[in-house]
């Protein structure tokens, strides 16, 4: 059975590192809505490569630092 992966993100952590930036501020700077940022943080929405790159640039991080693949729990038999 193929392993399944979730995408985990560290957006909130990097918003703190970027000077307690609010979701609305981040949204304004990357050209998205606050709802979109919130949905990404909650794992309800995976952004496009373009939006992920814009977020990474604004937060001063790399894509890999912001988004990581995480193997789903209970499905580790490969």
């Amino acid at each position: 059975m193929k392993p399944k992966y979730d995408i985990r993100n560290e957006l909130r952590l990097y918003r703190v590192k970027a000077g307690d930036m609010t979701q609305q501020e981040l949204a304004d700077r990357v050209g998205a809505t606050r709802q979109t940022i919130m949905s990404i943080e909650k794992g309800r929405y995976n952004p496009s490569v373009g939006l992920a790159l814009r977020i990474a640039k604004v937060l001063g991080a790399t894509i890999e630092e912001l988004f990581q693949l995480e193997e789903e729990k209970g499905d580790r038999n490969g």
Binding site: R12, L13, V16, D20, Q23, Q24, Q35, G43, R44
Partner: peptide, 14 residues
């Protein structure tokens, strides 16, 4: 569990 909390701003958490 993945709901929009509404107007309340999601404060950054560590």
């Amino acid at each position: 569990g993945n709901d929009d909390p509404g107007e309340r701003e999601q404060g950054p958490s560590q």
